[in-house]
């Protein structure tokens, strides 16, 4: 991986982190976390860690689903 791609994907991770912090809505925060996970994947692929990549790609959505189970439904909010 060269510098250009490093800057692009690193910018995605930083952008996702900032968006996660400043967004108010819970669903917006979860979507921004998805951008962080997306930005990490090419770095794992570039180092040849395909097993780590597959495991991360499965763990991240499953944890999102468990977080969604824990929060209240939107229709129940006042």
């Amino acid at each position: 991986m060269n510098e250009f791609l490093m800057i692009v994907f690193g910018a995605m991770v930083i952008l996702g982190g900032i968006a996660t912090i400043i967004s108010r809505d819970l669903f917006d925060k979860l979507i921004s976390l998805g951008i962080i996970v997306a930005g990490i994947m090419p770095f794992l692929a570039d180092r040849g860690l395909l097993d780590v990549l597959t495991a991360t790609a499965l763990i991240a959505p499953l944890s999102t689903i468990f977080i969604l189970m824990a929060i209240r439904r939107r229709a129940d909010e006042p």
């Binding site: 996970v37 990549l53 597959t54 790609a57 991240a60 959505p61 969604l68």
Partner: peptide, 18 residues
Amino acid sequence: IVAAAAYFVGSTLESNAI
């Protein structure tokens, strides 16, 4: 291919759940 498919399906599942 397996890694890319796992990432893609996982991301789709996340969007679906949200």
